[in-house]
């Protein structure tokens, strides 16, 4: 009886949480459902169909854009992981002048809206004559991924027992040995999580890419944007569903890696 009363008391809270979660997920759920609907424009269910996915599969241009996005994402994530990971380790291990400033800069970059970085890089690239295309996109994507890698890796490294490093130093280990034998083995889940999040960011970025991409190098998020602007076609439902599924998988994996030892 008391447990029933207890559950009833919690009913408003439970319904509130559910309402917000429904708000988050209902549109996505509808989108995915209708990517399998046979009907072209109607919302009425006309039966299950792979038709729109088959259309996507046959779309050559889309494959080219997907290939570009994959190349860009993998390269940007790898370089951002290296630079951001080293930065996080450095911020934790060493004292150096400008350390506070570096810390602050990383967080300002996370907070600053994409559009500001987009136009700033556009001006930079046109000033130093970097043609808009793969290279401009790569430099931009590395730049907006680095702060997220730093934060992800740093929050893991501060949870390490500082005695480990001291013990290693006492036993005569150089920084290089500490780095390769202690830090890297302990830190790889966070580094990999940073890589996955960077890849996701790169795959999803519209605003910055919109400013620094060129006509010769089409990427998926911009392709989706132009498709959505052109009008509602059922293939977009399918494409968005695929993209959503891929990013959810990446995000879940990254969260598992970060949370493993908490």
């Amino acid at each position: 009886m008391s447990s029933l009363l207890h559950s009833l008391r919690r009913l408003p809270t439970i319904s509130y949480v559910s309402a917000i979660l429904i708000f988050f997920y209902l549109p996505i759920f509808v989108l995915i459902t209708y990517s399998f609907n046979q009907a072209q424009y109607s919302l009425l269910w006309h039966g299950f169909s792979w038709h729109w996915y088959q259309n996507l599969w046959a779309d050559r241009d889309l494959w080219v854009a997907a290939g570009h996005s994959l190349l860009l994402g993998v390269t940007a994530a790898t370089i951002a992981m290296t630079i951001g990971g080293l930065a996080a380790i450095t911020l934790h291990r060493y004292l150096f002048s400008g350390k506070q400033l570096l810390h602050a800069l990383v967080f300002v970059l996370i907070l600053s809206p994409d559009i500001v970085m987009g136009i700033a890089l556009l001006i930079l690239f046109s000033l130093i004559n970097i043609p808009l295309g793969f290279w401009s996109l790569l430099l931009a994507h590395i730049t907006f991924c680095i702060p997220f890698v730093v934060v992800t890796v740093y929050s893991r490294i501060v949870s390490f027992d500082p005695d480990i490093f001291e013990a290693a130093t006492d036993l005569g280990a150089t920084d290089m040995i500490i780095f390769t034998r202690i830090i890297l083995p302990l830190l790889w889940p966070a580094l990999f999580a940073g890589w996955l999040l960077s890849f996701t960011l790169s795959l999803d970025d519209v605003i910055i890419s919109y400013f620094v991409s060129g006509p010769g190098f089409d990427i998926l998020p911009l392709r989706i944007y132009s498709m959505v602007r052109a009008g509602v076609k059922p293939e977009i439902n399918a494409l968005c569903s695929v993209m959503f599924a891929v990013t959810v998988a990446l995000v879940v994996l990254s969260q598992l890696l970060i949370r493993k030892k908490k």
């Binding site: 988050f24 549109p27 209708y34 996701t200 944007y225 879940v252």
Partner: peptide, 16 residues
């Protein structure tokens, strides 16, 4: 999940 997934795709989902 919504924090990291594409905001463009989520906007499009809202249109539907």
């Amino acid at each position: 999940i919504p924090f990291w997934t594409s905001s463009l795709i989520r906007s499009y989902a809202m249109i539907t």
